[in-house]
Design a protein around this nucleic acid. Structure first.
Length: 617
RNA sequence: GGGGCGGUAGCUCAAUUGGUUAGAGUACCGGACUGUCGAUCCGGUGGUUGCGGGUUCGAGUCCCGUCCGCCUCGCCA
């Protein structure tokens, strides 16, 4: 084989005169008859033009060259020369070409189902279903190669940073024990223990805490996690976390370390200097933005106008407020009226858009979304304008309204208003065209650390307390004693306890989340009591962790980053499948391998399982 | 589990109100062509209109069911 001396991306005019060998795939061919054939040869490093020129190559080679087709695999030897036909500025190797002296057809391809070309057929990529089926062809596309390389670089920067900071990379089991809280799990039957099952880990949460008890001091792992839930554009059942845990630290120390990581990552990945990251309490995020991961690239903040609304003549405001305004409580069933001021909305938000908002908020249980415009004279127009006449000046002062503004109102319970306007805010921002492009395209990277999450929230269906993060999350240091002392039936107090958890939010997307863990058995047992777990049940579920905590557990805390989402940000894609080499579809299939597939009865018998097969119609 | 969009040649798409033999570009095959770079020119092959049923003289088009892909709500401690 004519093994390569260079890649297809590295030859320049400085190489002119050298004899080189290249290996790669035929990216395109331009034949001018036997005797002059141009081949653009591609590997993952780039494209180089190769030319079969002249009769002295022999008829056989010239004839083969004339019939080379896209994606054939070839090797050539030849000399580098300046292009006789002029430079091609589209290629980084565009000043030179290789005149072939030796040639080897390494593998003739079957006609590929589509070409791995970023511009695609008819200017569009082939259907994603097809690209997933022939993933090995799609991955040849320069964009996909770049994605794989970016992901690789992120691994390296990550390992280097945490190594420098004294973290040990430690692998934890993939075959693990089922912990029914949280996401649905993938199950694996045991051959040796009939009727018993492994689960694939939702995260290595318990193991990393155990590693702290084990004296490892600082742990990191780039680990696969599994959650058998329906995917989204930025979510797969099988995904990757940068998982971390530290001993002898409190919340501030972890946050400091993570800020350092974020700073290093952005510096090394794209040369961006991340400024000091602002911290925002959960409660403030919910009040101002209606969501626990606010996108702070734009304003459009939410204002509670219940007091003013109560003095208006708007019937549905009054209806919502009939049970009394009740601002601070999150699970409250009582009413509020909230509004978003949209600067310049009068001109930019069309009737069709605002009609859509009405429908949109109904999707979150709200009765509707009222729209008022402030005209050039400062008067309210449309909809409920006349019923607001009595509070016009007060409203203008509370919302700081100016001519040209549009105001969007929702009146309902606290939780409905918050959720509906939090989601609506994002839609309005897109409609207004005020969401900057992601950072890789030059827009701002807006980081935020959200802290002081409630420890517990009420389950919507059962009405029982559930842990907002997970049951090992500690109350914040200043509340630990109050928590231990609290009456479990005192809902207001329990609801007010905030945890030592923290999320890192980037442009409205959660990229990391973690917490200080409970290392005090008193606190841990109180949490289980609140969650409705008896000591026996708690022991059943988490025995090994609870036991470990008794044998000298250091104070510890950790966090996990969503690696796939980080890569997405550096590539500016909103499709998680772009950053995973072999992703799955909406129903969890791998279209290339055909997984999941059936197994034989023999295999099932081995693991003491039987299949309930769907009826074949 | 719910909602939305989509599935026509290998690929990207078109096909009027339900009406002739389902077309175009590209890919592929054959030929021409000595400086192209999305090469060009000539010719050709290529169709279970996702699948199943129904309405109709006649279905890519209308109706019912179903499968698959994407987006989304629920879900994701």
């Amino acid at each position: 084989m004519l093994r390569r001396t260079h890649t297809c991306g590295e030859l320049r005019d400085s190489h002119v005169g050298q004899t080189v060998r290249l290996n790669g795939w035929v990216n395109s061919y331009r034949g001018h008859g036997t005797g002059l054939v141009f081949i653009d040869l591609r590997d993952r490093f780039g494209i180089t033009q190769v030319v079969f020129d002249g009769e002295d190559l022999g008829k056989e080679i010239l004839d083969t060259a004339d019939h080379l087709r896209n994606e054939d695999v070839i090797a050539i030897e030849g000399s580098v020369r300046v292009r006789a036909g002029g430079e091609n500025p589209k290629l980084i190797t565009g000043k030179i070409e290789i005149v072939v002296t030796k040639f080897e057809l390494l593998n003739k391809t079957a006609n590929p189902p589509f070409l791995p070309d970023d511009t695609g057929s008819g200017g569009k990529l082939a259907n994603e279903e097809l690209r997933l089926t022939y993933r090995y062809v799609d991955l040849r596309r320069p964009t996909m190669q770049k994605a794989l390389a970016t992901r690789h670089k992120l691994y390296q920067v990550t390992r280097r940073y945490f190594d420098e900071n004294g973290f040990l990379e430690i692998e934890t089991p993939i075959l693990y024990k089922s912990t029914p809280e949280g996401a649905r799990e993938f199950l694996v039957p045991s051959r040796h223990l009939p009727g018993n099952w492994f689960a694939l880990p939702q995260s290595p949460q318990l193991f990393k805490q155990i590693l702290m008890v084990a004296g490892c001091d600082r742990y990191m792992q780039i680990c696969r996690c599994f959650r058998d839930e329906d995917p989204r554009a930025d979510r797969q059942a099988e995904f990757t976390q940068i998982d971390l845990e530290m001993s002898f630290v409190r919340r501030e120390h972890v946050i400091e370390m993570m800020e350092g990581f974020v700073r290093r990552l952005w510096k090394d990945m794209c040369g961006y200097d991340v400024p000091p990251i602002q911290k925002m309490p959960y409660r403030e995020a919910m009040e101002r933005f209606g969501i626990d991961r606010p996108d702070t690239r734009y304003a459009l903040e939410i204002t509670d106008i219940s007091e003013t609304a109560a003095k208006s003549e708007v019937a549905f405001f009054k209806d919502a407020l009939a049970n009394g305004a009740d601002r601070p409580r999150f699970n409250s069933k009582r009413g509020v009226v909230k509004a978003i001021r949209v600067p310049d909305g009068a001109a930019k938000l069309t009737r069709k858009m605002t009609d859509g908002y009405n429908e949109f908020v109904r999707g979150f249980g709200a009765g509707g979304c009222a729209v008022v415009k402030v005209n050039a004279a400062g008067e309210f127009e449309t909809g409920i304008a006349k019923f607001l006449a009595s509070v016009k000046d007060e409203l203008k002062s509370v919302l700081k309204l100016v001519p040209g503004d549009t105001v969007l109102f929702v009146a309902d319970t606290y939780s409905v208003c918050t959720k509906a306007l939090g989601e609506l805010r994002q839609v309005v921002a897109r409609d207004m065209g005020i969401v900057p492009k992601p950072g890789s395209e030059g827009g701002p990277w807006n980081f935020l650390i959200v802290v002081d999450f409630p420890m517990f929230e009420k389950d919507k269906e059962t009405g029982r307390w559930v842990a907002m993060h997970h049951p090992f999350t500690a109350p914040n240091d200043d509340q630990a004693e109050a928590f231990v002392a609290a009456d479990v039936n005192d809902e207001v107090t329990i609801e007010g306890i905030v945890s030592a958890g923290y999320d890192i939010v980037l442009n409205g997307q959660e990229i990391a989340g973690g917490s200080v863990r409970i290392h005090d058995p008193r606190v841990q047992s109180k949490v289980f009591t609140l969650l409705g777990l008896t000591p026996e049940q708690a022991k059943e579920k988490f025995s090994f962790l609870l036991e470990a905590l008794q044998f000298g557990a250091p104070p510890h805390a950790g966090i996990a980053f969503g690696l796939d989402r980080l890569v997405m940000n550096f590539l500016g894609t909103s499709n998680i499948r772009d950053v995973i080499a072999f992703p799955k579809t909406q129903i969890g299939q791998d279209l290339m391998t055909g997984a999941p597939g059936p197994v034989t009865d023999e295999q099932l018998k081995d693991v003491h399982a039987t299949a309930i097969r769907p009826r074949v119609p």
